[in-house]
């Protein structure tokens, strides 16, 4: 009778053959080709980050202005927040020395890029969001504020 360990090794060899047949979908190559063609994404990410930081700053000023009115404070309901989610790609960024939380209101559709599931009918609806931004200006995490 075949020893159990021999049987296991033969079975693992069969599973190895099956494993080697797993293939990545072709669109991954296409995406990476696009990224490689368009240059180093870090550069793009930093440009995007500066644009985002500027947008966030404007958003904060507008939001603070709105928040400071007595009527706005009176009408403000208790807020609930989701857990922070890492911004896609932020895992590979260097750890920031300092972080700040920036609260903005953005169209829900903008949150798709951060992994939130937003149905098309809701895309234009405004929603509050807190961004954790490093001292390098790059966003690390985001949460929703309701």
């Amino acid at each position: 009778m075949m020893k159990r360990s021999d049987e296991l090794n033969q079975t693992l060899a069969e599973l190895r053959r099956q494993h080697q047949q797993i293939e990545a979908p072709p669109f991954l190559e296409t995406r990476l080709r696009t990224a490689a063609r368009s240059g180093r994404p870090a550069t793009m990410a930093r440009r995007w980050a500066w644009a985002m930081a500027a947008a966030l700053l404007v958003g904060i000023v507008l939001w603070k202005t709105h928040q400071s009115s007595p009527e706005a404070r009176r009408m403000q309901p208790a807020e609930t927040v989701t857990e922070f989610m890492a911004v896609p790609g932020s895992e590979t960024l260097p750890a920031p020395l300092e972080t700040s939380i920036l609260r903005v209101r953005v169209p829900k559709g903008e949150l798709r890029q951060y992994g939130f599931d937003v149905p098309p009918p809701d895309a234009r609806e405004m929603v509050g969001a807190d961004f954790v931004v490093g001292d390098d200006g790059l966003a690390r995490a985001v949460r929703l504020v309701r």
């Binding site: 990545a24 995406r31 990476l32 990224a35 994404p41 990410a45 790609g89 895992e91 590979t92």
Partner: peptide, 23 residues
């Protein structure tokens, strides 16, 4: 194999090679 999830595998594979470009 580790995630048993195609969407995770796709995302991770993409991010690994983008990380190579970035760092």
């Amino acid at each position: 194999r580790i995630s048993q999830d195609q969407s995770i595998a796709e995302e991770v594979t993409q991010d690994v090679f983008l990380a190579l470009l970035r760092q």
